[in-house]
Design a protein around this nucleic acid. Structure first.
Lengths: 340, 340
DNA sequence: CGAGAAGTTGAAAGCGTTTTCACAATAATA
DNA sequence: TATTATTGTGAAAACGCTTTCAACTTCTCG
């Protein structure tokens, strides 16, 4: 565990095993032939002295940092954190290690964080829900392997890993319809924020189209714009109630807002699911423990992280890679009532 | 934004400003006198060419990486993530940048992750709830500035930042007593896990002593050991109910278990707080949105991160530093009923 | 058996900084 | 004014690795 007193270098290994440092470097990097006996000798020395190459020296000499920059938007977001875990797992068995940064959903902060990553000479980049504009992204893409998760960028479709929000949302709404609900409200995610977060818009579209397909014309009175935050879910209930148009179910564009909505209903003494049914989106860890447990749409976040990591690794090795559109899955729990 | 085509080096700056690279280095690092005109010239060149020193070269030459290793135990834990955010904020204005790793509460994984950090030559370390044994930690402490958050280690008291679990727990229990509760159950955190997670034990002690102080002998039948996970909170309700000893309130050692317990009560048709009152610990973001909103103990996680960062930065500069025991605060919401 | 191809190897040249060293220039002291 | 400190400065030596280059072996094949 403890690093030895004196830093040992490639020179030490060379002496210990009676070869030149070039040879040591070669056996360690593996990209050149070395006769077996020398190879063994070097390996033995490495093992004996517990040698660990100096990454700075390696980086300086080779121009590679053996690290992959990963930009999240918020440490603490259940969805993104799960992706992070997936990325860690995916990168684990490679020689690369991830370098994290947090954009905190603010373009200026993200740009600064990106600079830090770039300064550290990351060899590749994984961007989660980035706010950067497409020009910057296209530029980055030219410089190094790139994967963008949870946002699709025109011209970079190859490099984007997104879930089919529309379809998932369509399904969730259909689930409600199948259970006999006719008057279904929707709390949207943030809609306006320029190019970002179009997740919200896609989910809204899925909801509307599902309704139409069932022969129901979506009513503007039943959709209220949220911000993906719990608070906005709470507020949405007030708005909905004030508008006075009755509804028997609510589909929230994410679990946080569903949670907020749930509290709003509780405050008004409206029972879930007896009086109003509720569906969320994301399947946050705690959603399974809500009262009642929340029916929601699960995005395979961890798997997505894994896929992103794999794709980046493949690019790094010049191998082909593909990022299919991943589909989400409805998790049926107890927040939806069957109406007869 | 985009890095220029050709990497520009200190050499370019030297030429552009008509001085030697030594001088450039000096004005940039600031630790040697340079006459004002040259200084200005260099700065101008740096600005003009948008020069950014190569961190590898710097690291190699100076032996410093200008990075601080930060080990968390789980991306996705509300408490730890908040600390992470605090650390980021605290380190932001310095020249250092954080390097994150995830120990996932598994000693072997943590050791490996630590090695990665060490290989990257971090200049200092912040360890959150580490599982490493004290010998390793003492060893690390000798090598570099170190701050350990949320765990106290014998011989390293100076370097540990912990919250007063005992006191907070005592207060939470007292709150229940003050509201007239006599039969208070406790769902503990993980107790047995060797040296780690003694948070659980401290919270248990606080609970017991508060009871005793009120003249109530704590009953073993009312405490059930949990694991800090939601699931164990759910199970605990079953255990408690099976034991048959009545209780009017539950104090869970964290919010996750409180959430689990809440679901358990819901399943049994036991109302909160009408039939049973509930208190948690941690004040997770979503706890404010539970039904009913959960009374809980808030640890100032983000502030703790800030303090940890500051302490590490001070150490790095050879300045004195201190890590006071931070105290938690009871957040009264709606999950506790006043019994008359 | 001999010529060229292929495989091994060490010396040495970077990679882009920081830092030591020696020297020159300036300021302070006598 | 002559000496001695003090500063400011560039050349050059690290820092620890990768990679090119050239030399030397060892194969292959006609």
């Amino acid at each position: 565990m403890a690093a030895s007193k004196e830093r040992i270098t490639i020179q030490d290994i060379a002496e210990q095993s009676g070869v030149s440092i070039s040879t040591v470097s070669r056996v360690l990097s593996g990209n050149a032939g070395v006769t077996e006996p020398k190879r063994q000798a070097v390996l033995a020395a490495v093992d004996k002295l517990d040698y660990r190459p100096n990454l700075f020296a390696q980086g300086l000499a080779s121009g590679q940092s053996m690290s992959i920059g990963v930009m999240t938007q918020n440490f603490g977001s259940a969805f993104y954190d799960a992706i992070l875990r997936g990325i860690i797992a995916g990168v684990e068995k490679s020689n690369y290690s991830p370098l994290f940064a947090d954009g905190r959903w603010r373009t200026d902060i993200e740009r600064r964080a990106l600079q830090t990553l770039l300064n550290r000479r990351v060899d590749a980049l994984i961007l989660l829900g980035t706010q950067l504009d497409s020009d910057d992204l296209l530029d980055l893409k030219k410089q190094m392997p790139l994967v963008i998760v949870s946002r699709s960028v025109a011209g970079l479709e190859q490099n984007c890993l997104v879930v089919d929000n529309y379809k998932a949302s369509f399904q969730a709404t259909t689930h409600l319809l199948d259970r006999g609900h006719q008057h279904i409200a929707h709390i949207t995610g943030a809609l306006s924020e320029s190019n970002v977060l179009r997740d919200g818009a896609q989910r809204l579209a899925g909801y509307q189209d599902a309704l139409r397909k069932a022969g129901i014309e979506p009513s503007p009175k039943l959709v209220v714009e949220g911000s993906f935050r719990s608070q906005s879910g709470l507020l949405a209930i007030e708005t909905l109630l004030t508008r006075g148009k009755p509804f028997s179910a609510i589909f929230a564009a994410n679990d946080q807002m569903a949670t907020g909505a749930r509290l709003g209903l509780y405050r008004r003494g409206i029972r879930v699911p007896d009086d109003v049914s509720l569906i969320g989106f994301d399947d946050q860890p705690h959603s399974a423990y809500m009262t009642p447990p929340l029916t929601t749409v699960r995005q395979p976040a961890e798997e997505m992280g894994l896929m992103a990591a794999q794709a980046v690794l493949n690019q790094l090795q010049g191998k082909p890679f593909a990022l299919p559109m991943v589909s989400a899955e409805l998790i049926v729990r107890e927040s939806v009532k069957h109406i007869y």
